[in-house]
Nucleic acid binder design. Structure first.
Lengths: 343, 343
DNA sequence: TTGTAAGCGTTATCAC
DNA sequence: GTGATAACGCTTACAA
């Protein structure tokens, strides 16, 4: 790594425009008090010299970086890429930038958090993975607001925005039971993650107390291929007995299940096996799937996340506002029978 | 926006550890000359105070930011989210960070580029959208290396990494012709974009010179829904006549076409209509589609992009190395008949 | 190896 | 409205 040729500074612009350097700064500060005539002259000089203010320097003195770190799970899960897209758009609208990080599914994000904390970001959004309690402590010491997105950390007071995973999954459970499902298979996601856990718990809160229900859980690895392979393994033997219904804790796994069941085993959905997912990703609503699922209201969740980040950093957010649980939208879809009237 | 509570600085750590401030800096600089004993003492003090070095400040004095801006098209196109994932992973591995921007399909990216250039990033990767020549000039003046990814700017000398769109599309054209297609429909992407243009040109270079070929072009808006709606509009009338084959210039549109044709019109693929896409996104290779397509070798393209960014910024890259065209991989798929032996 | 002093390019402060 | 001048938190000489 070698030094880059240094760029044009405000001093050079000031000289060319015949003003002082701070005046150049004012010309680039919306709402600063500066004579229109001077401003124009400065902007012209800046353009001629290819000058743009250096955000790092301005951040250093103003203590504002306008940068937010977003730590995502694997973007090959459309839920994360859809969310990231919304984050980037929203932040861009408010002239803030997203510093993007990614964490492998199932891994903790301490390393990446450490990277992120070296930047004087205005906040960190974590959409995935576990954090050590030490990291939590450290970030609190640093005074960088952290918001968990689609996640919570049970033993901490960390701010979190999530969909109502418990109730959403319970609703899906009720639908399946009402449609006659009794032998039920749950395809888990990351066993460490709060999201998968909450969804499984919400779903089981319904089916476990239903007379005659037999419930089995398997791991689907949180991914398309993980779920697909899980299906193939689970039903690979001779004359496998299929359940009445499968609840995959997210859509991408539900899609993996659907593809495997239909292609490898010739199963019809929902005639032979019902299926439900969670998240409401676009892909799941396309013609080959039309998943019965619960949509996470990403836009609203992102908005609430921004609000929490914007809260005055020093002031503590009251405990009861620190965890926002937003109801999901039930999408009837076509993978549980009898949903037509619900639409 | 109010000032954030300022974080712990190296001065405070220095005081606690009983050393000078630059020594603290050395403790955090890999390979700096510092006594092991002091380093340990400093790291302990830092941990106690929750100190982490401020990247902005260090960048200001070292002229290295370790940040790269990536300007993507809409991440709801899986090609872009797959690419971004690879960029983020690759950069993270080399301890660099990605500043993520997004540009709406079909819009120019001047605004966003301006935002990005305020950061002293080590480079800018543009995976989408048009740039004004003024912007190009400006970025050259700024000395920030720019690499176009999956794109080129015809009248400029901008560095570009792309898949061989022309040859890949020509190959698909040859396959279709060999399979007997004569009435052919091309679904364009962004009419302004070089990518769509190159693919259409490559494809037409084959079919236009084939005896008896009738070729039509329509716009698919570069998106799933755009292509889907285009199909519905185009074949919405009474007793529509379908072409022998459809070439969508990217996979996400091919998928939109497939869904519309199958669901709305009851068309079988490839029995009634052949179909091909371009990009090789994961989704296109799943059970419901198994698209015949050309895969862009994203990993390799990203690697080459990093290489170009790493070239000493001052030195010019020789003109003939400034545009890297990488061959794509033909994926036989199942949407053009007679591909089995190709696999 | 370590400390001192001088930047890096801005914004903030405070006179004028 | 504008200009000096002092931060901001770090790295890089340079001296010790």
């Amino acid at each position: 790594m070698k030094k880059k040729k240094s760029r044009v500074t405000s001093f050079e612009v000031a000289k060319l425009a015949g003003v002082s350097q701070p005046t150049v700064s004012r010309a680039f500060t919306p709402g600063a008090s500066i004579a229109k005539e001077k401003r124009d002259r400065i902007l012209a000089a800046a353009k001629k010299l290819n000058y743009v203010p250096n955000v790092f320097a301005s951040s250093l003195s103003s203590k504002r970086s306008n940068m937010v770190a977003v730590i995502s799970g694997n973007l090959n899960n459309p839920f994360y890429s859809e969310s990231l897209q919304v984050f980037v758009e929203s932040f861009q609208r408010s002239h803030r930038q997203v510093l993007a990080f990614s964490v492998q599914d199932g891994h903790d994000c301490d390393d990446v958090m450490m990277q992120a904390m070296r930047y004087p970001v205005d906040g960190i959004v974590v959409t995935s993975a576990q954090m050590s309690s030490e990291l939590v402590r450290m970030s609190e010491g640093l005074g960088i607001p952290i918001v968990m997105f689609n996640r919570r950390v049970s033993d901490s007071e960390l701010a979190a925005v999530q969909c109502d995973n418990t109730e959403g999954s319970a609703a899906l459970g009720r639908l399946m039971v009402a449609a006659g499902a009794r032998r039920i298979l749950i395809v888990r996601g990351d066993p460490q993650g709060s999201t998968s856990g909450d969804r499984v718990a919400g779903f089981r809160s319904v089916v476990d107390r239903t007379e005659g229900c037999v419930v089995e859980e398997i791991d689907g690895g949180s991914s398309y291929s993980g779920a697909r392979n899980a299906m193939i393994r689970r039903f690979g033997g001779p004359a496998p007995r299929f359940p009445d219904a499968i609840f995959a804790v997210n859509d991408i796994m539900a899609i993996g299940c659907a593809d495997a069941l239909r292609e490898v085993h010739g199963i019809r959905i929902p005639e032979d096996v019902m299926l439900a997912g969670f998240d409401g990703i676009r892909e799941g609503q396309r013609a080959p799937y039309r998943l019965t699922t619960v949509r996470q209201p990403i836009e609203r969740m992102v908005t609430e996340t921004l609000e929490m980040l914007d809260k005055a950093p020093d002031e503590q957010i009251p405990a009861d506002e620190r965890r926002r649980v937003i109801p999901g939208d039930l999408i009837p879809g076509r993978t549980i029978p009898g949903m037509e009237r619900q639409a």
